[in-house]
Design a protein around this nucleic acid. Structure first.
Length: 756
RNA sequence: AGGGAAAUAGCGUAAUUGGUAACGCAACAGCCUUUGAAGCUGCCAAAUCUGAGUUCGAGUCUCAGUUUCCCUUCCA
């Protein structure tokens, strides 16, 4: 494994490592199976990144497979877009197509029919839904469930030949109509659909459904670990069923499905339906509108694949659906851009300033990067707009200062507020890279609006702050598109659900998600590649819109603003945890169980244990045979139901050793568990291994002493009140004693030691 | 007569598998600063969903409960 892993350890890497170690697989194969019926978005990058990175981390193979089993919605256009987007993300591979394996899937279906495991259903869809039952009512079979194999074979052949209309028949797996898992109530395998497939043309008029296709395709692709989101967890049963009952030389692996929690992002929606609605309602300009969560949109906005990958990596993976703070994305984007974006000056809301004492224009040589960026560079070099890495002194451009300049409207206040660090009348401020200016007059029109500021400039001096500027003569006008969050609330979908009637998520659209400004920018940018991502100092990160911008009509997208600790409104007070009163409900026991419960508690057995015993006759009878109710916790924890697992005498004897301080409790548990699997005499095990507990203070003390002297920092921490560390000391001592030390004695000794 | 999954600082993820509750983001403070950015330093915050049990010791094991999410497409 490479030194820097792409995926932090998680529950999936744990499984993979176990499988690799046990030899279940030699090399892992993961896969990402998008359906080509829409554009890839941030949600996809999370899943794809996981699969890709896992394969990379474990030297495995990553497969990209188009899950194109539904000809009605899928298009070549989407295939191309998805592949293009994923390649842009840095995930490149030979693309596989589910539809290329239709023949294999068909043959396997025939096999299932032959085995009597699939049948042709012929009731209507509505009827079938009725027969399926509900979550708490079991399903019923239709009259067609018991058709003969021959008849099923014939019907399926005719389905394939195109003899029937859409929906007339359906191939179903014969599993279990009464299963509490709805997915297992004879799921559909194949449907009739007279539609042209974008890839297979009119070759097929029957198409496999998701559950069936997914399992077979994964096996064909040699997938070992098939990852999907949580909502498919019930489908796993079909997945396994299919793979257990189908045999075909093309099936290269026995894949297993594992589920991870989805990650949604605050202030966005990703469902295809909702994204389409945004476009149809003209809330955004299209799939690649930079406010959209699609990869195409993020790319157009100027966000880099590195930033998206770092974001995907940063949010990790777990078994819970989670909503991620938008700040996490924003951090990843800024963090990425900070070191790669040359700084230039652009004014978004121009405000005229006359430098009265400036005789002639001056050409200033300004650095593209501030010292901090240079300092954090690993190679001491910085990225020049021309794409090469150069020494910092070479990363400069020339900026002209003239008599007439523009500054940012917000950088001047006639009546300054407290803490204002910019230009005021009579105040001084530094013009970035040019000197100190002092304002002595504001020229107003009749309406009292300020037209321009009259200032004087001096090379050095004290100033309230630093502001950016652009020379009026040489500056170039441009259009600035300032993008902001698309919604006003973090969870527009959830909010919409809370509303009555047909209220929908569109009512939470942020009316200011796009602001268009006419700005002015220093001309140096014209000499550099148009794809350069810049930081406009004090304004944020920008780049030219790849579609709408041209040399004659510059359009810059704001990729993301700078973090602003000055103007941002203080965040709303922390959401309070709603602590609801917890009501303990009476648990339901049969009258018989209740009687047992009473008997057991009468024998001084705790409520929690008594419940277990009352409901488990095996445990109960075993405990009875030990003739000692005090052994209840041993019987329960070891799951002793049968004397063949462990002779009651052995249990009694071992516990006796524990009670007489001759064996530690943990050791006893380990030995008993071992005895249960090996059927060896636990007493002999203890004897032969010399596991008697060490209660001898004098032999324990040196070990304790060693542990204490080896960890002086922890000793002081303990003495400073971190008493939780007692566990560390006890654990270490026991470990070093080979597990034989009496923990109680050890703990007492350590406490005594540490408190002196 | 339902089945399944989950719950750890404001957010996200960890915790040597029963032995120090940690990291990143956010927030806050200080330093630094020719970007109110960045950088550096510090700080706050969890009775690990609740209650009980076992244990010298529980985020981790057992039991009971609570809350949230998923499943009744011939979509995926």
């Amino acid at each position: 494994m490479p030194d820097a892993r792409l995926v932090a350890p998680n529950f999936i890497t744990e499984i993979i490592e176990a499988d690799l170690e046990s030899g279940r697989v030699q090399q892992i194969v993961t896969r990402f199976p998008p359906e080509p019926n829409g554009f890839a978005h941030l949600g996809h990058t999370f899943a794809c990144n996981l699969n890709y990175s896992l394969a990379a981390d474990y030297n495995g193979v990553w497969v990209l497979r188009m899950d194109d089993t539904n000809p009605e919605t899928e298009k070549l256009e989407y295939v191309n877009a998805i592949v293009h987007d994923l390649e842009w993300m840095g995930w490149k591979t030979q693309v596989q197509f589910a539809s290329d394996d239709f023949q294999i899937m068909h043959d396997c279906a025939v096999q299932l029919i032959e085995k009597g495991l699939a049948y042709v259903e012929s009731v209507s869809a509505e009827e079938m839904a009725k027969l399926r039952g509900t979550v708490d009512k079991s399903g019923q079979s239709s009259p067609f469930r018991d058709r003969s194999v021959a008849e099923n074979l014939d019907l399926f052949k005719r389905m394939r030949r195109g003899e029937f209309l859409n929906g007339k028949h359906l191939l179903r797996a014969k599993i279990d109509l009464t299963s509490p898992n709805m997915k297992l109530r004879d799921p559909a395998l194949y449907r009739i659909l007279h539609a042209e497939h974008y890839r297979q043309g009119k070759q097929w008029c029957i198409y496999p459904l998701y559950d069936y296709a997914q399992a077979i395709n994964d096996a064909i692709n040699g997938v070992t670990h098939s990852l999907c989101s949580l909502e498919f967890i019930d489908n796993k049963a079909i997945y396994d069923w299919v793979l257990e009952h189908v045999e075909h030389p093309a099936l290269k692996s026995r894949p297993y499905q594992y589920e991870f929690g989805r990650r949604s992002l605050e202030y966005t929606v990703v469902s295809k339906r909702k994204l389409r609605k945004l476009i149809e309602s003209d809330s955004v300009a299209g799939w690649d509108d930079p406010r959209m969560p699609t990869i195409a949109a993020q790319r157009r906005r100027g966000i880099t694949p590195e930033a998206i990958r770092s974001f995907a990596k940063g949010i990790g993976v777990s078994r819970t659906n989670r909503t991620v703070d938008i700040g996490a994305l924003e951090f990843a984007v800024r963090d990425d851009l900070n070191t790669r974006s040359p700084r230039v000056m652009a004014v978004l809301k121009p405000f005229k300033v006359i430098l009265e004492n400036l005789e002639a224009p001056q050409n200033l040589k300004l650095s593209y990067y501030p010292p901090d960026v240079i300092n954090v560079s690993s190679d001491g070099l910085v990225l020049h707009p021309n794409g090469t890495r150069v020494p910092p002194e070479q990363a400069t451009r020339v900026v002209q200062l003239g008599k007439e300049i523009f500054i940012e409207q917000d950088d001047f206040l006639e009546t300054p507020t407290a803490g204002f660090k910019r230009l005021t009348i009579g105040g001084k401020v530094r013009l970035r890279g040019a000197g100190i200016i002092e304002c002595h007059q504001a020229i107003k029109n009749d309406a009292g609006e300020i037209l321009e500021l009259r200032c004087t400039i001096q090379p050095e001096g004290k100033a309230a702050g630093v502001i950016h500027w652009v020379n009026a003569q040489t500056g170039i006008p441009f259009e600035a598109r300032l993008y902001d969050r698309l919604f006003t609330v973090p969870n527009p979908e959830q909010e919409a659900k809370l509303e009555e009637d047909d209220a929908d998520f569109l009512m939470y659209l942020n009316p200011h998600s796009l602001e268009i400004l006419k700005g002015i920018i220093e001309p140096s940018i014209l000499e550099q590649p148009s794809i350069t991502r810049y930081q406009f100092e004090r304004n944020g990160y920008f780049w030219q819109d790849p579609i709408d911008s041209s040399t004659n009509a510059l359009v810059f997208n704001r990729i993301i603003g700078l973090k602003d600790n000055w103007t941002t409104a203080k965040p709303e007070v922390g959401k309070e945890k709603n602590l609801k009163p917890q009501i303990q409900h009476k648990l339901e026991l049969s009258p018989e169980e209740k009687t047992y419960l009473e008997q057991l508690t009468a024998q001084n057995i705790s409520q929690a244990e008594a419940i277990v015993l009352a409901r488990d006759s095996g445990l109960r009878s075993y405990l009875k045979q030990t003739k000692n109710p005090q052994l209840s916790s041993w019987v329960i924890q070891l799951g002793l139901r049968d004397t063949t697992q462990l002779e009651p005498n052995h249990l009694i004897a071992v516990v006796e050793l524990v009670l007489s301080n001759k064996l530690s409790r943990n050791m006893a548990k380990d030995i008993l568990e071992e005895a249960m699997t090996t059927h060896l005499n636990p007493l002999e095990l203890i004897q032969s291994r010399g596991l008697e507990q060490n209660n001898d203070t004098s032999s324990l003390e040196p070990i304790i002493q060693a542990v204490i002297t080896a960890n002086p920092d922890k000793v002081t921490a303990y003495k400073n009140g971190r008493t939780g560390l007692i566990g560390f000391f006890v654990g270490e001592t026991i470990k070093q004693s080979g597990g034989k030390a009496n923990p109680q004695i050890v703990q007492e000794l350590i406490k005594k030691q540490l408190e002196n």
